[in-house]
């Protein structure tokens, strides 16, 4: 039974070239989006590994999504396509584990899509709110530890 009152904690793996800039734009445009999301910047969503998605969930995130460039417009050509495949694979692992695959997702947007960034944040937060708390946060796992551990692995090699 979904708990509609709970506040989902969501990790977003955002590409430096698009979604991260789109988040900036959303801020400049004074658009409202939920405070439920915690963003981790990647040099490209192609940097996203399956283990990053699992670690975020394991640490208590209720949902995780990757936000990369529009298909065909990846700065590194195909990084966002790799990310989509990895997200799809992670969904199959969640099915195996008996956890809702909808807790992970892949979105595409350009750096000019501030409004789309806010829309996705709203849409995904509402999706997770409908699903209810992750079965992995039963012990009250503190999500605050997630960005540090996940980001440490995810951001290796990020250009300075």
């Amino acid at each position: 039974m979904a708990d509609h009152d709970f506040e989902p904690e969501i990790i977003v793996f955002a590409c430096h070239y698009c979604a991260y800039a789109a988040a900036d734009l959303a801020g400049s445009m004074r658009l409202q989006y939920p405070t439920n999301i915690r963003m981790i910047k990647l040099p490209c969503t192609g940097k996203l590994e399956i283990i990053h998605l699992l670690k975020a969930l394991e640490a208590g995130a209720d949902g995780v999504y990757a936000a990369g460039c529009m298909e065909g417009e990846c700065h590194y050509l195909k990084g966002n396509l790799w990310a989509r495949k990895r997200v799809e694979y992670a969904k199959t692992l969640l099915v195996e584990l008996g956890i809702e695959p909808e807790r992970v997702e892949m979105y595409n947007m350009s750096s000019a899509m501030g409004a789309r960034f806010a829309e996705v944040a709203n849409e995904f937060t509402e999706r997770i709110r409908q699903l209810g708390p992750s079965p992995l946060r039963g012990d009250g796992a503190a999500l605050d530890v997630v960005p540090a551990t996940v980001a440490a692995t995810a951001e290796e090699g990020q250009p300075t």
Partner: peptide, 19 residues
């Protein structure tokens, strides 16, 4: 190593979900 880390994470997730 990559797949071993993923499997270990999966097994921990399963255990955690079951308490």
């Amino acid at each position: 190593e990559k797949e071993a880390e993923i499997l270990a994470s999966e097994l921990r997730i399963k255990a955690k979900a079951e308490g």
